[in-house]
Simulated assay, not measured.
Amino acid sequence: MSSPSRFDVLISEVGPRDGLQSISTTMSTAHKCAWIDGLVASGVQEIEVGSFVSPKLLPQMADAAQIVTHAIQHSGVTVMALVPNIKGAEAAMRAGVHKITLPVSASPAHSMANVRKTHQQMVEEVRAIAQLRDDLAPQVHIEAGISTAFGCTLQGLVPEDDVIALSVACVAAGANESGLSDTTGMANPAQVKRLFTRLRSELGDHAGAAHMHNTRGLGLANCLAAYEAGVRTFDASQAGLGGCPYAPGASGNVVTEDLVFMFEAMGIRTGIDIERLLAARNALAAGLPGEALYGMLPPAGLPKGFVPHPYSTH
């Protein structure tokens, strides 16, 4: 697992899962491995490398176990995978992941569309997976990511009390932490700060990551609001790839390159070398020729005179 001494905020790279499952092109296993190698070389400390779901549903993730086998060879990196159910959780644990994340939707409509389960059924799934973890791989860390926490394209507004109650229930069921996801890109900074303040008040150290989307251009502002509320772990996707197949119109994640630059420019250490991160973007582009890549920093470059924090290797 990663050491907290090299950074003030943890950037969790979700592109190899969230990004790749959201596009029609399937990146080859070799290109995925090369991309992950580039991310690790830049200093990224946590990578969501895939999801353990039926290859019939997501053929882009069919090689998840192979990718985990490759990724866990890197020391000092937390290798994470998304699992929608206990079958996927067992496969992920047997593959050797350090951390699993479960999508638990605060919107009943999205929950049924995404995992075909109600809130209570998903909480019970968390409980069953936590028991399996205790029996099979007690070192594995479980995160319950509360999706559609800031609004849902299917049902509209999501009551904040419901979001907090669901997070608390997931931790009570055995999850190590519960974070909040702006799956649909509907969040605003005031809402983000308010909801994460409540979450941290309820869960303390069990409050997890901020997963923001840039659908309406507020991704970085929302991350900053979460930081001001005390959040120190942020999901991001290189080149802004990502979305949700069950949330129409919910375009890409916060761009990793832009988020790292924002924090480093503020004097907040990420432990990531920006130049090497941009080099990893080249590996991504090589594996997805013709795919649109996003971000403000890559075309603009670093400002003249910009001096990032010294980069330290693993």
Rank of each mutant, 00 (worst) to 15 (best):
A95C: 06
A137E: 14
A130F: 01
E177G: 05
L195M: 03
K193N: 15
G156L: 08
E160N: 06
N114D: 14
V126K: 04
S111P: 05
A173Y: 06
T118Y: 02
N176W: 06
P189A: 14
Q131D: 13
Q120A: 05
G185N: 15
H110F: 12
A149D: 03
R200V: 07
T184N: 15
A128C: 10
V97D: 11
P159T: 02
I146S: 02
Q120F: 01
A106S: 13
A165Y: 00
G174Y: 00
L136V: 15
G179K: 07
R200W: 05
P189Y: 12
F150C: 04
G96L: 08
L102V: 10
V140A: 04
A172E: 15
A144M: 08
L180N: 14
V115K: 00
S111C: 00
H98L: 06
I164L: 09
R133M: 07
Q155M: 09
C152P: 12
V192F: 14
P103T: 11
L132C: 02
K117D: 02
R194A: 14
Q139C: 02
T183C: 10
G156I: 07
A128T: 05
H141A: 03
S147C: 13
P159S: 00
M186C: 13
A113H: 08
S167D: 07
E124N: 03
H141V: 13
A128L: 08
M112P: 01
Q139W: 11
P138T: 00
K99Q: 14
V158C: 00
S111H: 01
V140Y: 00
V158F: 03
Q121D: 11
A109T: 15
S178N: 14
L180A: 12
K117I: 00
P103N: 10
T197C: 04
S181F: 11
R116L: 01
S181P: 08
N188Q: 15
R116K: 09
D135L: 09
